[in-house]
C-alpha cells in the first residue's frame, strides 16, 4: 500500500515534468538570446555574430528539450499500458502524455522565431 502511494506521488511529479521542461527551455532560450546580445556589444565584442550563435544555441536547447519530452512520453505510455487495473496510474499516465504533447508543441512554437526573425538584437 505504501509502495503504491509513493509510486503515485512520483507519477504525479512526472506529470508536471513536461511543462517544467518547457519552462526551463523557455527561460534558457531567453537567457541565451539576451546574453548573445550583451556579449556582442562594445568595441571588442566577445561574440561577433550573435545571430548565428543564438540560433545554434536555441537549436541545441530545442533538441535537448524535445529529447527529454520524448523520454517522458515513453514513461507515460508505459504507465498507461501497465496501469490498466489502477485508476490513478491511468489518470496520471494520461495527464503525463497530454501535458508532454502540449509542452512539445509549445517548445517547437517558441523555437520557430529563431528561424524566422532576422535580427537577434
Amino acid at each position: 500500500m505504501q509502495n503504491r502511494r509513493s509510486r503515485h506521488v512520483w507519477e504525479f511529479v512526472e506529470t508536471l515534468l513536461g511543462p517544467i521542461i518547457y519552462l526551463g527551455f523557455f527561460g534558457l532560450s531567453y537567457f541565451v538570446a539576451t546574453l548573445g546580445c550583451v556579449l556582442s556589444r562594445g568595441n571588442e565584442p566577445m561574440i561577433a555574430d550573435p545571430q548565428t550563435t543564438v540560433r545554434i544555441a536555441v537549436l541545441v536547447l530545442t533538441f535537448l528539450a524535445l529529447a527529454m519530452i520524448a523520454r517522458l512520453t515513453k514513461n507515460g505510455v508505459r504507465l498507461l499500458s501497465q496501469g490498466r487495473d489502477d485508476r490513478e496510474d491511468t489518470f496520471l499516465g494520461m495527464l503525463t502524455l497530454a501535458l508532454a504533447a502540449l509542452s512539445a508543441l509549445a517548445i517547437i512554437w517558441t523555437a520557430l522565431p529563431v528561424a524566422t526573425v532576422q535580427q537577434s538584437c
Binding site: Y30, A33, T34, T110, P113, T116, V117, C121
Partner: peptide, 10 residues
C-alpha cells in the same frame, strides 16, 4: 531585442 519579443509572442 526582436528575438526576445518573439519568444514571448509565441
Amino acid at each position: 531585442p526582436a528575438l526576445s519579443q518573439s519568444f514571448f509572442s509565441a
